[in-house]
Amino acid sequence: MSARDVVFPPGRQALYEKNRYSPAIRSNGFLFVSGQVGSRPDGSTETDLQAHVGLAFDNLNAILSAAGCTFKDVVDVTVFVVDPESNLETIWKVFGEHWGEAPYPTLTGVGVTWLYGAQFEIKVIARLPEASAAD
């Protein structure tokens, strides 16, 4: 079995080691990114929903960048939303700032009752640029 090729964004490795998971793993031409919430570098969570979603995208983009990717390389998105009936409209406004132009990635939205103190989480799969160039 080969070692996992872990990607750490700058300044957050201690947070991931404390919580015992990898922010992202490179494998077979893809980047698999763990769910990102609106957490600050110290691990505290932003409570304002709009700011929380923006910070979650900032955290996601830091991981993508550390792997040499951008959101344009994302092919699949899964979002988890606490109380989507009340929160989806606010969340969707922030998406527009980060989503980019068509063609869009696939999207799965899941309504949940609890996210460990967060209201929104996003996880993605991205195609690594070097894998795209090999096609």
Rank of each mutant, 00 (worst) to 15 (best):
M1N: 08
S2G: 12
R4L: 15
R4G: 10
D5W: 03
V6S: 06
V6E: 01
V6R: 01
F8S: 08
P10T: 10
G11F: 04
Q13L: 05
Q13C: 01
A14D: 09
L15N: 07
N19Y: 13
N19R: 15
R20D: 11
R20E: 14
Y21W: 03
S22G: 08
P23K: 04
A24C: 12
I25M: 07
I25H: 05
N28L: 09
G29W: 05
L31V: 06
L31M: 09
F32G: 03
V33P: 01
G35N: 00
G35M: 07
Q36F: 14
Q36W: 10
G38A: 08
S39I: 06
S39Q: 15
P41N: 10
G43F: 14
G43V: 08
S44K: 14
S44T: 13
E46H: 04
T47G: 02
D48R: 05
V53F: 10
L55G: 11
F57Y: 13
F57N: 10
D58S: 15
D58C: 15
D58H: 14
N59V: 11
N61L: 04
L64S: 10
S65T: 15
A67V: 05
G68I: 03
T70C: 05
F71L: 09
F71S: 05
D73Q: 13
V75Q: 07
V75P: 02
V75T: 14
V79Y: 00
F80A: 14
V82Y: 05
V82A: 08
D83P: 07
D83T: 08
D83F: 11
D83G: 13
D83Y: 09
S86V: 11
E89H: 14
T90S: 15
T90P: 06
W92Q: 15
K93G: 07
F95K: 04
F95W: 10
E97V: 01
E97G: 01
E97L: 05
H98K: 10
P103F: 12
P105H: 03
P105I: 10
P105E: 11
T106V: 02
L107W: 07
T108Y: 01
V110F: 07
G111S: 08
T113V: 12
T113R: 13
W114F: 07
Y116W: 14
A118T: 09
Q119S: 14
E121R: 04
I122H: 00
K123E: 07
K123W: 03
K123H: 03
A126S: 09
R127L: 11
L128P: 00
L128S: 01
P129R: 05
A131W: 00
A133F: 14
A133N: 05
A134W: 02
